[in-house]
Design a protein around this nucleic acid. Sequence first.
DNA 1: TTGAAAGCGCTAACAC
DNA 2: GTGTTAGCGCTTTCAA
Lengths: 335, 335
Amino acid sequence: MTIYDISEKAGVSIATVSRVLNGSQNVSDKTRKKVLDIIDRYGYTPNAFARGLGLNTMRTMGIMCADSSDPYLAKAVYYIEQKLRASGYDSLLCCTGYAPETKAASMNLLLTKKVDGIILAGSNFVHDKESENKYIADAAAQIPVMLLNADLDIPNVYSVLSDAFSSMYEATVSVFQSGIKDILYFYNSNSYSGKHKLAGFLAAMKEQTASEADAMTQFYHGSHEDVHAMVDCLKNLRDKGLVFHGVIASDDMLALAAVKYAREMNYRIPEEFSVLGYNNSMLALCCEPELTSIDNKLETLCQHLITTLLGLLEGREMPKKTVFSGEIIRRGTTR
Amino acid sequence: MTIYDISEKAGVSIATVSRVLNGSQNVSDKTRKKVLDIIDRYGYTPNAFARGLGLNTMRTMGIMCADSSDPYLAKAVYYIEQKLRASGYDSLLCCTGYAPETKAASMNLLLTKKVDGIILAGSNFVHDKESENKYIADAAAQIPVMLLNADLDIPNVYSVLSDAFSSMYEATVSVFQSGIKDILYFYNSNSYSGKHKLAGFLAAMKEQTASEADAMTQFYHGSHEDVHAMVDCLKNLRDKGLVFHGVIASDDMLALAAVKYAREMNYRIPEEFSVLGYNNSMLALCCEPELTSIDNKLETLCQHLITTLLGLLEGREMPKKTVFSGEIIRRGTTR
DNA sequence: TTGAAAGCGCTAACAC
DNA sequence: GTGTTAGCGCTTTCAA
C-alpha cells in the first residue's frame, strides 16, 4: 500500500494525499475527509524511509552512554527517551563502554544513520586533550550535540549539568563540621564531573583544615558493580595504616561499599563513621542505614537538555550552558 | 556529497560506486581502489534514508520495555543493544511504562519506523486474554517478534525465557527444608513470569506442607522503587497478626525490603528469618547481609534471543521457544 | 484547491 | 567488469 494506491482509490492525486498526510491547510474539508477515510479503511502508513529521504529526517535522536545498565545512566536514558518520545522523536541507543577508542566509531555510526541530534549522557565523553574531543566537534559540525553533566566549548555543542564542585564542597564542609575530620574521598572516575567533585572536596578540606597538607583520596580501579572489590580497596588502605572515619564517595555504590566497610570494622554509623554518596539513586534507600547522598536533579537536567535540543532544531537561540545546583539529601549515614 | 559526485570524480558510473560500497566482487581491484580513494578523500557516507528506501531496511531493531531504569530491564536492554550492535544492527528504544493502553501505540510507532524486528523485554507485555495480545500478533504479521521471559503461541513470535516455575519451586523447597516453614511469598507482578514464579512457590508449599491450606502470599501494589512502602506493606501484615519467618520475593528489591523488615523486627538473619530474592541483581550484593537470589541467566537469554532473531531474518528455521534453567546463588540471607 | 512532475540518493536488473 | 536505467515512496515546487 503506497501513496499511489490511496490517491487512486480516493480519486485524487498523490500530492493531495501527501497534503492530507502532512496536515496542509490547502485541502478542502471534503477532499480531506475522503482521503482520510480511504487511509483509514486500508490501514495505510506512509513509508518512513521514503519520507526520510524527502524530508531528510526521520525524527530520531541518538543517545550515547557508556553503560545503560549503570543505575544513574539508566535513569538518564529513561528520562531522555520519555521526553523525546513525548515530542515525537525516537531514540537510537548506543552503549559505547568506557574505552575511549570506541566512542568516535559509535558516534559515526549514529551520524551515518542521520539522527537529528546526539545526546552524550554522562561526563565520560569529554576528555582533557582537545584532540580527544575532536570526534565531538566533528559531529557538532553536522548536528547539535548535547552534553549531560559535562561542558565543552565547541560550536553547536550545548551543556546541561549540575554544579558538582559546589555540591561536593558543601557536603564536605558539612561532614567536617559535624565533627568527622579524617575524611577519605573515594572515587572511580576522572571524567569531567569526576574532576569537579574531587576539586570541590579538596577545596573544602583545604579551607577547613587550614592546611596545605593533602587530603586523603583513593581512586578505585575495579568494576563499578563489584562491591566486594570496593570494600577490599578500603580495607587495603586501612591495612596500610591509613585511618579515616568518614568517606565521601563520588557515587552511591562506592558509598555503599564504605558503609559495608564501616560495618566490618565495627564502627557505629553515623556516630563514629560517616558516609556520603552521590546521585541519590535507588541504592541510597537500599543501604542500611540509608545513605546521605547528593541529589543532582537528574530529571530536571534531562528536561532542560531536551528542551534545549528541540529549541535548537527549531532554529531558536538556546543557552550554551545550563547549570543547576545539587542538593544534599540527609539520611542515616551522617550526623 | 552523493553517489553521483563520487562517480563523477572517480570517472565511473554510480553502479560501480554502489558495487564498491556494497562489497560486490564484480569490480576490478584497480577500479575499486580508485573509488575508495575518492570516497576516502571526500569523506563520503551513503545516505541511510535512500539506502533504506532501496533495501527496505535500515538494520534497526525495536526494543520495547516497560521501564529501562528498572535494574533488571536495564541490564537486559544493555545486553541486547550490545549484541545487536555487534551484528550491525542499531536499537530503537521504546519505554512503554506498565499501563496496557500504551503498548499497542508504542508498537505501532516502531512498526511505522520500519524496524527489522521487535524485542519485548520483560514479561509484562503478554496478557491473559487473547484479545489483549492482538497487538503482538498484528506486529508479528509484519516482522518477527521476540519475547524475553514470556511465551506466546502466535506465528512469527519467538520466546526465550528461564524456567521461573522450577527455580521458585526449588528455592521454596530449599528454604522450607532449611527449617523455615512459615514462608511468605512477596510479589508485585502478575505478568507471565510473575504467575509462573508464584505457581512454583505454591506447588512447593503444597507438597512440603502436605496440606491444602493456602500458603501465605502478599501482592505489593506500590512503586517498584519505594523500599519504604514495601517494608510498610510487610509491617502491615505483621500488625494484622500474620507471622512469617521467611520471605521469598519475586524480585531482589522486594527481598531487600524483607531484609529491612526483619532487621526492624530484630530477627537474626538467616537463623531466625530467611529471605530469598530473584534476578541476582546488583542489589543482592548491596544488601546486608548479602541476598540469596535466583539467577535467571539474563545474558545467556539475551544472547540466544539475538541469535534466534538474526537467524529468523536470514530465513533460517529457529526454535519457537528456548528455555533455560535458573540457578540459586546462595548468600547470607538463607541457611 | 488541485495536479503534474521533478527531485531525494540509492539498489539492482539488464545490457554490453 | 562496467554502464544505463528503472524503480523505491515520498515531498514540494510550479501551473492551472
